[in-house]
Design a binder for these strands. Structure first.
Length: 467
DNA sequence: AAGGGGTGCAACCGCTGCGGG
DNA sequence: TCCCGCAGCGGTTGCACCCCT
């Protein structure tokens, strides 16, 4: 112990000796935290690990004032701070840099995090860019805590009615409802065969997966496998972001059969991002995260993979990037607005036919926890009224529907083979992504044109809607 | 009051990408 | 082209605090 502390004092700095002389005496745990994480350089000192002391903070702040950020490995050289560059950078970024916002996340921040996570997955650093004063570490911790909470509560990862601004399906494939030509163009695109689709989507890696080969069953296996993994592990939330929202789906969810015991209220699952103070009104998005489904109750999230629906896309040049998109959200009247608005006209999802009630955010207004509690209540009451029939086979999700098997791949429903099994629409089917997609698309005049068997789709839809 | 479990946060670790030599 | 160092990112861990029994 003493030797270790002595080794610290051997680290000298021509300008900061006086200031630093007390560092290591100040930290009783320092000696216990001498570690191997960062390799020491230069002065033969042993790098310290563990909690930072105020004196160390002062040293680092002073260093940054003098030399600016960056060159973190030189901190150890220019000061007596026995911390590796990594540690310094982290300490500065997470605790010392100016304008850091401390304390609990606000409701707006919470909501934004949810939306962003639905959109981009575990891209904490990117999220942090859109939350001024917040660090990626903070956001990550918050999210992990939230996951645990929701897991315990048996709730899906995303609150009910979360509207995601521009998940790739809505962003890339949803035409503007106000532009029939564009709509048709999207339909044409999605109905295209292999070659044209490749040309049109050649910048979209995910679309490439979808259309690179019309032998979907083969080319989409990895994707489908992911889906089945998600479903198999109950990771419903992973599916959620890919789902185009539609009022019909919402209505189906809220049929008395499903929520007969739920407390009466207006569309309790509708939370629109457009209501978010940080979003512009132009950014109503209609990608709804379906609320909890008991077949996908758990909020388990593979840690290292982004959400399926948040697959990072290589956006075409005419589209704004993720960053710019969020800039747009947070600063709706930026100079880019005009451009972005015009882009929106092309890429934004159609506005909901059923407008969210003004108080749709009411449940959100009380914070996420309240939302979760509310959702748990509803879920508890509705849980017994439906059953699961999800069929997962060999890495692909084969959805028996009207005697056909459809491989569901993030929105593309591909008929592959005949099946004898008769599909009965149960609740679990209703909330299945494929069904949701189909119902949504069909209702919107097949504008997306992916589903190829419209007759069976109609049947399913009519059953779905109780027809 | 004590202890055991849960929770949240800070920090570390390992990997990856990038740029310079 | 390869290697090396650096910065950054995301996942994981450790620990202090809190709450409940």
């Amino acid at each position: 112990m003493v030797e270790r502390e002595m080794s610290y004092t051997m680290v000298t700095d021509e300008s900061d000796d006086a200031m630093y002389s007390s560092i290591y005496n100040e930290s009783p745990s320092a000696a216990d935290n001498i570690g191997s994480g960062c390799t020491s350089r230069g002065k033969g000192s042993v790098l310290k690990k563990g909690p930072w002391t105020s004196t160390e903070d002062g040293i680092l702040i002073d260093y940054v004032k003098r030399h600016g950020e960056g060159n973190w490995n030189t901190v150890q050289k220019h000061t007596s701070l026995a911390r590796c560059g990594k540690s310094c950078r982290l300490r500065w970024a997470n605790h010392l840099r100016p304008n850091l916002k401390k304390g609990a996340f606000s409701k707006e921040e919470e909501q934004l995090i949810v939306e962003m996570h639905a959109r981009m997955g575990n891209k904490w650093a990117q999220m942090a860019e859109h939350l001024p004063g917040r660090t990626d570490n903070e956001i990550k911790n918050y999210w992990n805590t939230r996951i645990k909470r929701r897991q315990r509560a048996g709730l899906p990862l995303y609150p009910p009615g979360t509207h995601v601004e521009d998940l790739h399906w809505s962003q890339e494939y949803h035409p503007s409802t106000s532009n029939v030509t564009d709509r048709r163009r999207h339909q044409d695109i999605l109905q295209l065969g292999n070659s044209k689709a490749n040309v049109l989507f050649d910048d979209l890696t995910f679309a490439n997966v979808l259309f690179e080969d019309l032998n979907f069953a083969t080319s989409l296996l990895p994707v489908a496998s992911d889906i089945s993994d998600m479903l198999g592990t109950g990771a419903s939330s992973y599916m959620s972001p890919i789902l185009p929202s539609h009022s019909n789906i919402r209505q189906a969810f809220q049929s008395p059969e499903h929520f007969q015991n739920a407390a009466p209220q207006k569309n309790p699952r509708s939370c629109s991002i457009s209501d978010h103070p940080m979003y512009g009104n132009n950014h109503r998005t209609d990608v709804m995260i379906p609320e909890s489904h008991h077949t996908f109750t758990d909020g388990m999230v593979p840690t290292s993979k982004p959400l399926f629906g948040a697959v990072k896309l290589e956006l075409p040049s005419f589209q704004y990037s993720e960053t710019s998109g969020f800039d747009q959200w947070t600063t709706p009247s930026t100079p880019q607005s005009d451009l972005l608005d015009s882009v929106d006209t092309y890429i934004q999802s159609p506005p909901p036919l059923e407008i969210d009630e003004p108080d749709c955010f009411s449940s959100c207004d009380t914070g996420l926890l309240d939302m979760l509690l509310h959702e748990a209540k509803i879920k508890a009451s509705a849980k017994h009224s439906f059953s699961s029939t999800t069929c997962i086979t060999n890495g692909t999700q084969n959805v028996p529907r009207g005697g056909e098997t459809h491989i569901v791949t993030s929105g593309a429903v591909v008929k592959t083979e005949e099946m004898d099994e008769v599909w009965e629409p149960k609740r679990a089917d209703v909330i299945r992504p494929d069904v949701l997609l189909e119902s949504s698309w069909q209702d919107q005049q097949s504008r997306f044109g992916i589903v190829r068997d419209s007759s069976s789709l109609s049947d399913a839809l009519s059953l779905l809607l109780g027809g």
